[in-house]
Design a protein around this nucleic acid. Structure first.
Length: 430
DNA sequence: TCTGGGGTCCTAGGACCC
DNA sequence: TCTGGGGTCCTAGGACCC
Protein backbone atom coordinates (compact mmCIF):
# COMPACT_ATOMS: atom_id res chain seq x y z
CA UNK A 1 0.00 0.00 0.00
CA UNK A 2 1.06 3.57 -0.71
CA UNK A 3 0.18 6.84 0.94
CA UNK A 4 0.15 10.07 -1.00
CA UNK A 5 0.66 13.01 1.34
CA UNK A 6 -0.43 16.22 -0.30
CA UNK A 7 -0.21 19.68 1.25
CA UNK A 8 -3.49 21.55 0.93
CA UNK A 9 -3.24 24.68 -1.26
CA UNK A 10 0.43 24.66 -0.38
CA UNK A 11 1.60 28.17 -1.32
CA UNK A 12 -1.45 29.78 0.30
CA UNK A 13 -0.97 27.65 3.40
CA UNK A 14 2.66 28.82 3.64
CA UNK A 15 1.53 32.44 3.57
CA UNK A 16 -1.02 31.70 6.29
CA UNK A 17 1.48 30.17 8.71
CA UNK A 18 2.94 33.61 9.44
CA UNK A 19 -0.30 35.52 8.93
CA UNK A 20 -2.86 33.79 11.12
CA UNK A 21 -5.42 36.51 10.46
CA UNK A 22 -5.70 35.09 6.92
CA UNK A 23 -7.29 31.88 8.21
CA UNK A 24 -10.77 31.38 6.86
CA UNK A 25 -10.24 34.22 4.40
CA UNK A 26 -9.68 33.94 0.63
CA UNK A 27 -5.97 33.97 -0.33
CA UNK A 28 -4.25 33.67 -3.70
CA UNK A 29 -0.61 33.48 -4.78
CA UNK A 30 0.51 34.88 -8.14
CA UNK A 31 3.06 33.54 -10.60
CA UNK A 32 6.29 35.31 -11.44
CA UNK A 33 5.77 38.86 -12.69
CA UNK A 34 2.46 38.84 -10.78
CA UNK A 35 1.07 37.32 -13.99
CA UNK A 36 -1.38 34.53 -13.14
CA UNK A 37 -3.11 33.01 -10.13
CA UNK A 38 -1.21 29.81 -9.32
CA UNK A 39 -2.52 28.94 -5.87
CA UNK A 40 -5.88 29.50 -4.20
CA UNK A 41 -7.20 28.86 -0.74
CA UNK A 42 -10.51 26.99 -0.48
CA UNK A 43 -12.29 30.29 0.10
CA UNK A 44 -10.76 31.72 -3.10
CA UNK A 45 -11.79 28.61 -5.04
CA UNK A 46 -15.32 29.00 -3.68
CA UNK A 47 -15.41 32.54 -5.12
CA UNK A 48 -14.89 31.00 -8.56
CA UNK A 49 -11.33 32.23 -9.10
CA UNK A 50 -9.77 29.87 -11.63
CA UNK A 51 -6.33 28.30 -11.56
CA UNK A 52 -4.09 30.12 -14.04
CA UNK A 53 -6.39 33.13 -14.37
CA UNK A 54 -4.47 36.22 -15.56
CA UNK A 55 -4.23 38.56 -12.59
CA UNK A 56 -5.32 41.67 -14.51
CA UNK A 57 -8.60 39.94 -15.38
CA UNK A 58 -9.54 39.11 -11.78
CA UNK A 59 -7.85 41.94 -9.87
CA UNK A 60 -10.92 44.14 -9.46
CA UNK A 61 -13.13 41.22 -8.52
CA UNK A 62 -10.65 40.01 -5.93
CA UNK A 63 -10.29 43.47 -4.43
CA UNK A 64 -14.04 43.73 -4.13
CA UNK A 65 -14.21 40.37 -2.34
CA UNK A 66 -11.31 41.16 -0.02
CA UNK A 67 -8.99 38.46 -1.35
CA UNK A 68 -5.47 38.60 0.08
CA UNK A 69 -2.96 38.58 -2.80
CA UNK A 70 0.69 37.49 -2.64
CA UNK A 71 3.53 37.44 -5.16
CA UNK A 72 5.20 34.03 -5.14
CA UNK A 73 7.95 33.63 -2.55
CA UNK A 74 9.77 30.45 -3.53
CA UNK A 75 12.39 30.87 -0.84
CA UNK A 76 9.68 30.61 1.80
CA UNK A 77 7.81 27.75 0.06
CA UNK A 78 11.00 25.80 -0.54
CA UNK A 79 11.98 26.02 3.10
CA UNK A 80 8.51 25.08 4.37
CA UNK A 81 8.52 22.15 1.94
CA UNK A 82 11.85 20.96 3.34
CA UNK A 83 10.38 21.00 6.84
CA UNK A 84 7.30 19.01 5.83
CA UNK A 85 9.38 16.46 3.89
CA UNK A 86 11.81 16.01 6.77
CA UNK A 87 8.95 15.09 9.11
CA UNK A 88 7.36 12.73 6.59
CA UNK A 89 10.60 10.91 5.86
CA UNK A 90 10.83 9.91 9.52
CA UNK A 91 7.77 7.67 9.20
CA UNK A 92 9.05 5.20 6.60
CA UNK A 93 12.32 4.35 4.84
CA UNK A 94 10.34 4.01 1.62
CA UNK A 95 9.88 7.72 1.01
CA UNK A 96 9.79 9.54 -2.33
CA UNK A 97 9.25 13.27 -2.64
CA UNK A 98 7.26 13.85 -5.80
CA UNK A 99 6.92 17.62 -5.95
CA UNK A 100 7.34 20.66 -3.73
CA UNK A 101 4.12 19.76 -1.90
CA UNK A 102 3.63 16.00 -2.36
CA UNK A 103 5.33 12.80 -1.29
CA UNK A 104 4.64 9.08 -1.60
CA UNK A 105 5.19 6.82 1.40
CA UNK A 106 5.46 3.04 1.04
CA UNK A 107 3.42 1.46 3.85
CA UNK A 108 4.57 -2.17 3.61
CA UNK A 109 4.77 -3.79 7.03
CA UNK A 110 3.08 -0.88 8.78
CA UNK A 111 -0.28 -2.55 9.23
CA UNK A 112 -3.51 -2.88 7.32
CA UNK A 113 -7.08 -1.61 7.34
CA UNK A 114 -8.00 0.67 10.19
CA UNK A 115 -4.45 0.41 11.56
CA UNK A 116 -3.08 2.15 8.46
CA UNK A 117 -5.69 4.87 8.68
CA UNK A 118 -4.73 5.51 12.29
CA UNK A 119 -1.06 5.61 11.35
CA UNK A 120 -1.81 8.14 8.60
CA UNK A 121 -3.73 10.26 11.08
CA UNK A 122 -0.67 10.36 13.33
CA UNK A 123 1.49 11.47 10.41
CA UNK A 124 -1.00 14.14 9.48
CA UNK A 125 -1.22 15.51 13.00
CA UNK A 126 2.56 15.51 13.34
CA UNK A 127 2.98 17.58 10.17
CA UNK A 128 0.29 20.03 11.19
CA UNK A 129 1.76 20.41 14.66
CA UNK A 130 5.32 20.72 13.39
CA UNK A 131 4.80 23.07 10.45
CA UNK A 132 1.23 24.42 10.59
CA UNK A 133 0.74 23.18 7.02
CA UNK A 134 -2.49 21.17 6.58
CA UNK A 135 -2.11 17.96 4.58
CA UNK A 136 -4.40 15.29 3.14
CA UNK A 137 -3.42 11.62 2.89
CA UNK A 138 -4.73 9.15 0.33
CA UNK A 139 -3.97 5.43 0.78
CA UNK A 140 -4.33 2.74 -1.90
CA UNK A 141 -2.54 -0.22 -3.50
CA UNK A 142 -1.18 1.95 -6.36
CA UNK A 143 0.04 5.52 -6.57
CA UNK A 144 -2.59 6.54 -9.09
CA UNK A 145 -5.34 5.20 -6.81
CA UNK A 146 -3.70 6.93 -3.84
CA UNK A 147 -4.07 10.17 -5.81
CA UNK A 148 -7.75 9.39 -6.31
CA UNK A 149 -8.14 8.69 -2.59
CA UNK A 150 -6.48 11.96 -1.65
CA UNK A 151 -8.88 13.89 -3.90
CA UNK A 152 -11.79 12.32 -2.06
CA UNK A 153 -10.02 13.10 1.21
CA UNK A 154 -9.96 16.76 0.24
CA UNK A 155 -13.53 16.91 -1.02
CA UNK A 156 -15.23 15.40 2.01
CA UNK A 157 -14.63 16.74 5.49
CA UNK A 158 -15.95 13.48 6.97
CA UNK A 159 -12.71 11.66 6.14
CA UNK A 160 -10.77 13.87 8.55
CA UNK A 161 -8.01 14.28 6.00
CA UNK A 162 -7.30 10.56 5.50
CA UNK A 163 -9.03 8.47 2.83
CA UNK A 164 -8.23 4.85 1.98
CA UNK A 165 -9.17 2.66 -0.99
CA UNK A 166 -8.33 -0.86 0.15
CA UNK A 167 -11.10 -3.11 -1.17
CA UNK A 168 -12.47 -3.93 -4.61
CA UNK A 169 -15.85 -2.46 -3.64
CA UNK A 170 -14.29 0.84 -2.60
CA UNK A 171 -12.17 0.96 -5.75
CA UNK A 172 -15.18 0.50 -8.06
CA UNK A 173 -17.26 2.95 -6.08
CA UNK A 174 -14.51 5.57 -6.07
CA UNK A 175 -13.75 5.28 -9.79
CA UNK A 176 -17.42 5.29 -10.80
CA UNK A 177 -17.89 8.87 -9.66
CA UNK A 178 -14.41 10.09 -10.57
CA UNK A 179 -14.09 12.29 -13.68
CA UNK A 180 -11.55 10.74 -16.03
CA UNK A 181 -10.04 14.19 -16.60
CA UNK A 182 -9.01 14.29 -12.93
CA UNK A 183 -6.99 11.09 -13.19
CA UNK A 184 -3.23 11.51 -12.68
CA UNK A 185 -1.74 11.35 -16.18
CA UNK A 186 -4.81 12.49 -18.12
CA UNK A 187 -4.39 16.05 -19.35
CA UNK A 188 -6.42 18.47 -21.41
CA UNK A 189 -5.88 16.87 -24.81
CA UNK A 190 -6.56 13.36 -23.66
CA UNK A 191 -9.64 14.50 -21.81
CA UNK A 192 -11.19 15.73 -25.06
CA UNK A 193 -10.22 12.52 -26.83
CA UNK A 194 -11.67 10.33 -24.08
CA UNK A 195 -14.90 12.32 -23.74
CA UNK A 196 -15.30 12.05 -27.51
CA UNK A 197 -15.24 8.27 -27.19
CA UNK A 198 -17.73 8.21 -24.37
CA UNK A 199 -15.19 7.69 -21.59
CA UNK A 200 -16.38 10.04 -18.84
CA UNK A 201 -15.31 8.41 -15.58
CA UNK A 202 -12.19 6.61 -14.41
CA UNK A 203 -14.27 3.43 -14.26
CA UNK A 204 -15.20 3.84 -17.95
CA UNK A 205 -11.51 3.93 -18.76
CA UNK A 206 -10.73 0.75 -16.82
CA UNK A 207 -13.47 -1.05 -18.74
CA UNK A 208 -11.75 -0.42 -22.11
CA UNK A 209 -9.24 -2.95 -23.43
CA UNK A 210 -5.51 -2.51 -23.04
CA UNK A 211 -5.02 -2.28 -26.80
CA UNK A 212 -7.65 0.46 -27.07
CA UNK A 213 -5.96 2.45 -24.31
CA UNK A 214 -2.56 1.96 -25.93
CA UNK A 215 -3.86 3.23 -29.25
CA UNK A 216 -5.46 6.30 -27.69
CA UNK A 217 -3.01 7.25 -24.94
CA UNK A 218 0.25 5.39 -25.80
CA UNK A 219 2.26 3.39 -23.31
CA UNK A 220 2.04 5.97 -20.54
CA UNK A 221 -1.73 5.69 -20.76
CA UNK A 222 -1.50 1.92 -20.37
CA UNK A 223 0.45 2.42 -17.15
CA UNK A 224 -2.27 4.71 -15.83
CA UNK A 225 -4.92 2.18 -16.89
CA UNK A 226 -3.15 -0.66 -15.06
CA UNK A 227 -2.69 1.47 -11.95
CA UNK A 228 -6.41 2.28 -11.89
CA UNK A 229 -7.09 -1.46 -12.12
CA UNK A 230 -4.93 -1.97 -9.02
CA UNK A 231 -1.70 -3.14 -10.71
CA UNK A 232 1.25 -1.19 -9.33
CA UNK A 233 3.60 -0.09 -12.12
CA UNK A 234 4.84 3.46 -11.42
CA UNK A 235 8.13 3.41 -9.57
CA UNK A 236 9.45 6.64 -8.12
CA UNK A 237 12.23 5.26 -5.98
CA UNK A 238 15.01 4.98 -8.50
CA UNK A 239 14.66 8.59 -9.58
CA UNK A 240 17.18 9.18 -12.36
CA UNK A 241 19.45 12.22 -12.20
CA UNK A 242 18.07 15.32 -13.85
CA UNK A 243 18.48 15.47 -17.59
CA UNK A 244 18.20 19.20 -17.99
CA UNK A 245 18.55 22.40 -16.01
CA UNK A 246 16.44 25.32 -17.13
CA UNK A 247 16.13 28.95 -16.04
CA UNK A 248 13.65 31.13 -17.90
CA UNK A 249 11.48 34.17 -17.30
CA UNK A 250 8.74 36.20 -18.90
CA UNK A 251 9.31 39.93 -19.10
CA UNK A 252 6.97 42.74 -18.10
CA UNK A 253 4.90 44.90 -20.46
CA UNK A 254 5.58 44.39 -24.16
CA UNK A 255 8.84 42.59 -23.58
CA UNK A 256 12.43 43.51 -24.33
CA UNK A 257 13.37 45.27 -27.57
CA UNK A 258 16.99 46.12 -26.89
CA UNK A 259 19.62 43.56 -27.72
CA UNK A 260 21.98 44.32 -24.85
CA UNK A 261 19.21 44.21 -22.25
CA UNK A 262 18.16 40.79 -23.50
CA UNK A 263 21.81 39.70 -23.43
CA UNK A 264 22.06 40.81 -19.81
CA UNK A 265 18.91 38.88 -18.90
CA UNK A 266 20.11 35.72 -20.64
CA UNK A 267 23.54 36.05 -18.99
CA UNK A 268 21.76 36.00 -15.63
CA UNK A 269 19.69 32.95 -16.59
CA UNK A 270 22.87 31.18 -17.66
CA UNK A 271 24.53 32.12 -14.36
CA UNK A 272 21.53 30.72 -12.44
CA UNK A 273 21.81 27.47 -14.43
CA UNK A 274 25.52 27.26 -13.61
CA UNK A 275 24.74 27.70 -9.92
CA UNK A 276 22.30 24.77 -10.04
CA UNK A 277 24.75 22.73 -12.11
CA UNK A 278 27.59 23.25 -9.63
CA UNK A 279 25.32 22.51 -6.68
CA UNK A 280 24.71 19.04 -8.07
CA UNK A 281 28.42 18.63 -8.86
CA UNK A 282 28.00 18.20 -12.58
CA UNK A 283 29.21 19.55 -15.90
CA UNK A 284 27.13 19.93 -19.03
CA UNK A 285 27.95 19.28 -22.68
CA UNK A 286 25.16 21.17 -24.42
CA UNK A 287 23.22 24.40 -24.01
CA UNK A 288 20.08 25.89 -25.55
CA UNK A 289 19.48 29.64 -25.54
CA UNK A 290 16.00 30.77 -26.52
CA UNK A 291 13.89 33.91 -26.70
CA UNK A 292 10.49 34.56 -28.21
CA UNK A 293 7.85 37.22 -28.65
CA UNK A 294 4.41 37.06 -27.06
CA UNK A 295 2.18 34.28 -28.31
CA UNK A 296 -0.84 36.32 -27.20
CA UNK A 297 -0.42 39.40 -29.38
CA UNK A 298 -1.14 38.58 -33.00
CA UNK A 299 -0.58 42.14 -34.24
CA UNK A 300 3.02 42.36 -33.06
CA UNK A 301 5.72 40.98 -35.37
CA UNK A 302 6.79 37.56 -34.14
CA UNK A 303 10.30 36.21 -33.71
CA UNK A 304 11.77 33.05 -32.23
CA UNK A 305 15.44 32.68 -31.36
CA UNK A 306 16.57 29.14 -30.63
CA UNK A 307 20.27 28.33 -30.52
CA UNK A 308 21.99 25.09 -29.59
CA UNK A 309 25.59 25.05 -28.44
CA UNK A 310 27.84 22.02 -28.06
CA UNK A 311 30.75 22.50 -25.65
CA UNK A 312 34.07 21.02 -26.75
CA UNK A 313 34.57 19.46 -23.31
CA UNK A 314 32.04 19.09 -20.46
CA UNK A 315 31.98 22.32 -18.48
CA UNK A 316 30.53 24.03 -15.42
CA UNK A 317 32.56 27.18 -15.86
CA UNK A 318 30.60 30.36 -15.21
CA UNK A 319 32.74 32.32 -17.64
CA UNK A 320 32.47 29.81 -20.43
CA UNK A 321 28.74 29.14 -20.16
CA UNK A 322 27.66 32.74 -19.53
CA UNK A 323 30.04 34.04 -22.18
CA UNK A 324 28.80 31.56 -24.74
CA UNK A 325 25.14 32.28 -23.96
CA UNK A 326 25.76 35.98 -24.58
CA UNK A 327 27.70 35.47 -27.80
CA UNK A 328 25.21 33.10 -29.43
CA UNK A 329 22.34 35.40 -28.52
CA UNK A 330 24.16 38.43 -29.99
CA UNK A 331 24.78 36.48 -33.18
CA UNK A 332 21.21 35.31 -33.52
CA UNK A 333 19.61 38.65 -32.65
CA UNK A 334 17.95 40.27 -35.67
CA UNK A 335 19.78 43.25 -37.17
CA UNK A 336 17.05 45.70 -36.22
CA UNK A 337 15.60 45.95 -32.74
CA UNK A 338 11.98 45.61 -33.82
CA UNK A 339 10.72 42.68 -31.75
CA UNK A 340 9.46 42.73 -28.19
CA UNK A 341 10.84 39.53 -26.68
CA UNK A 342 8.41 38.41 -24.00
CA UNK A 343 10.24 35.38 -22.70
CA UNK A 344 13.78 34.03 -22.74
CA UNK A 345 15.74 31.29 -21.09
CA UNK A 346 18.73 28.97 -20.96
CA UNK A 347 18.69 25.15 -20.77
CA UNK A 348 21.70 22.97 -19.99
CA UNK A 349 21.75 19.34 -21.20
CA UNK A 350 23.83 16.18 -21.18
CA UNK A 351 25.15 16.40 -17.65
CA UNK A 352 28.07 14.33 -16.39
CA UNK A 353 29.72 14.21 -12.93
CA UNK A 354 32.28 16.98 -12.50
CA UNK A 355 35.09 14.59 -11.59
CA UNK A 356 37.50 13.11 -14.05
CA UNK A 357 36.60 15.37 -16.96
CA UNK A 358 38.69 14.72 -20.04
CA UNK A 359 40.09 18.15 -20.88
CA UNK A 360 41.26 19.31 -24.23
CA UNK A 361 44.97 19.31 -24.93
CA UNK A 362 45.24 23.04 -25.38
CA UNK A 363 43.17 24.70 -22.65
CA UNK A 364 44.65 23.12 -19.53
CA UNK A 365 46.34 26.21 -18.15
CA UNK A 366 43.38 28.50 -18.59
CA UNK A 367 41.02 25.92 -17.15
CA UNK A 368 42.96 25.56 -13.93
CA UNK A 369 43.15 29.30 -13.38
CA UNK A 370 39.46 29.75 -14.10
CA UNK A 371 38.55 26.94 -11.72
CA UNK A 372 40.46 28.67 -8.94
CA UNK A 373 38.80 31.99 -9.67
CA UNK A 374 35.39 30.44 -9.66
CA UNK A 375 35.99 28.57 -6.43
CA UNK A 376 36.81 31.89 -4.82
CA UNK A 377 33.62 33.41 -6.23
CA UNK A 378 31.56 30.46 -4.99
CA UNK A 379 32.99 30.89 -1.49
CA UNK A 380 32.24 34.60 -1.36
CA UNK A 381 28.72 34.08 -2.66
CA UNK A 382 27.99 31.23 -0.28
CA UNK A 383 28.91 33.43 2.65
CA UNK A 384 27.38 36.71 1.47
CA UNK A 385 24.45 35.68 -0.69
CA UNK A 386 24.19 34.77 -4.33
CA UNK A 387 25.40 37.27 -6.92
CA UNK A 388 27.45 39.25 -4.38
CA UNK A 389 30.29 38.76 -6.84
CA UNK A 390 29.17 38.34 -10.44
CA UNK A 391 30.21 38.90 -14.00
CA UNK A 392 29.94 42.46 -15.31
CA UNK A 393 27.67 41.29 -18.11
CA UNK A 394 25.05 40.30 -15.51
CA UNK A 395 24.39 43.97 -14.71
CA UNK A 396 22.87 45.39 -11.52
CA UNK A 397 19.81 44.71 -9.39
CA UNK A 398 17.52 47.34 -10.87
CA UNK A 399 17.58 45.82 -14.35
CA UNK A 400 14.53 46.54 -16.52
CA UNK A 401 14.01 42.85 -17.31
CA UNK A 402 13.29 41.97 -13.71
CA UNK A 403 9.53 41.69 -13.33
CA UNK A 404 6.89 42.86 -10.91
CA UNK A 405 6.72 41.44 -7.39
CA UNK A 406 4.43 43.88 -5.71
CA UNK A 407 2.95 41.69 -3.01
CA UNK A 408 5.84 39.56 -1.79
CA UNK A 409 5.89 38.37 1.81
CA UNK A 410 9.06 38.30 3.95
CA UNK A 411 11.28 35.20 3.93
CA UNK A 412 10.31 34.47 7.51
CA UNK A 413 12.28 31.26 7.93
CA UNK A 414 15.45 31.93 5.95
CA UNK A 415 16.36 35.59 6.52
CA UNK A 416 17.32 36.70 10.02
CA UNK A 417 16.07 40.22 9.23
CA UNK A 418 12.60 38.85 8.45
CA UNK A 419 12.16 36.89 11.63
CA UNK A 420 8.80 37.32 13.35
CA UNK A 421 8.81 39.75 16.25
CA UNK A 422 6.46 39.32 19.20
CA UNK A 423 5.79 42.72 20.71
CA UNK A 424 5.61 43.30 24.42
CA UNK A 425 2.17 44.04 25.79
CA UNK A 426 0.43 42.28 22.93
CA UNK A 427 -1.20 38.92 23.09
CA UNK A 428 0.34 36.18 20.99
CA UNK A 429 -1.76 35.77 17.91
CA UNK A 430 -2.49 39.47 17.54
C1' DT B 1 -1.15 47.37 -20.97
C1' DC B 2 -1.44 42.94 -18.54
C1' DT B 3 -1.24 35.66 -19.69
C1' DG B 4 4.43 31.29 -14.83
C1' DG B 5 8.42 28.15 -14.36
C1' DG B 6 10.74 23.76 -14.30
C1' DG B 7 10.66 19.39 -15.34
C1' DT B 8 9.74 14.17 -17.67
C1' DC B 9 8.49 10.85 -21.17
C1' DC B 10 7.09 9.27 -25.78
C1' DT B 11 6.80 9.36 -30.81
C1' DA B 12 7.46 10.59 -35.54
C1' DG B 13 10.48 11.65 -38.87
C1' DG B 14 14.97 12.69 -40.81
C1' DA B 15 19.76 11.35 -41.45
C1' DC B 16 22.59 7.89 -41.62
C1' DC B 17 24.44 2.87 -42.06
C1' DC B 18 25.00 -1.58 -44.92
C1' DT C 1 4.88 2.78 -65.19
C1' DC C 2 8.61 1.71 -62.58
C1' DT C 3 13.03 3.55 -57.59
C1' DG C 4 14.71 -2.10 -51.41
C1' DG C 5 14.79 -3.48 -46.76
C1' DG C 6 16.18 -3.33 -42.24
C1' DG C 7 18.29 -1.11 -38.89
C1' DT C 8 20.25 2.86 -35.40
C1' DC C 9 20.62 7.41 -33.64
C1' DC C 10 19.17 12.02 -32.94
C1' DT C 11 15.96 15.78 -32.31
C1' DA C 12 11.76 18.51 -32.32
C1' DG C 13 7.41 18.61 -30.78
C1' DG C 14 3.57 17.14 -28.14
C1' DA C 15 1.59 15.46 -24.02
C1' DC C 16 1.82 15.26 -19.30
C1' DC C 17 3.02 16.65 -14.20
C1' DC C 18 3.03 20.20 -10.13
Amino acid sequence: MFALVDCNNFFCSCERVFNPQLRGKPVVVLSNNDGCVIARSNEAKALGIKMGAPYYQVRDFMQEKGVAVFSSNYILYGDMSRRVMTLLSEYTPDFAQYSIDEAFLGLDGLGEGEELVQYARQIRERVIKGTDIPVTIGIAPTKTLAKVASKYGKSYKGYGGVCMIDTEEKRIKALRSFDVADVWGVGRRHRELLYGHGVRTALDLTERSESWVRKMLTVTGVRTWKELCGINCIDLNDLPAKQSICTSRSFPDRGIYKKEILVEAVANFAAACVRKLREQHECCCRMTVFAYTSRFSSEQPQSVIYQQVQFPTPTNSLHEIVGKSASVLRNAFPVREEYGYKKAGVILWDMVPDEGIQTSLFDEHNRVKMAMLQKAMDNINRKNGENTVRLAIQGGDGAPWRGQRNYVSPSYTTDIRAIIRVNEGKKIGD
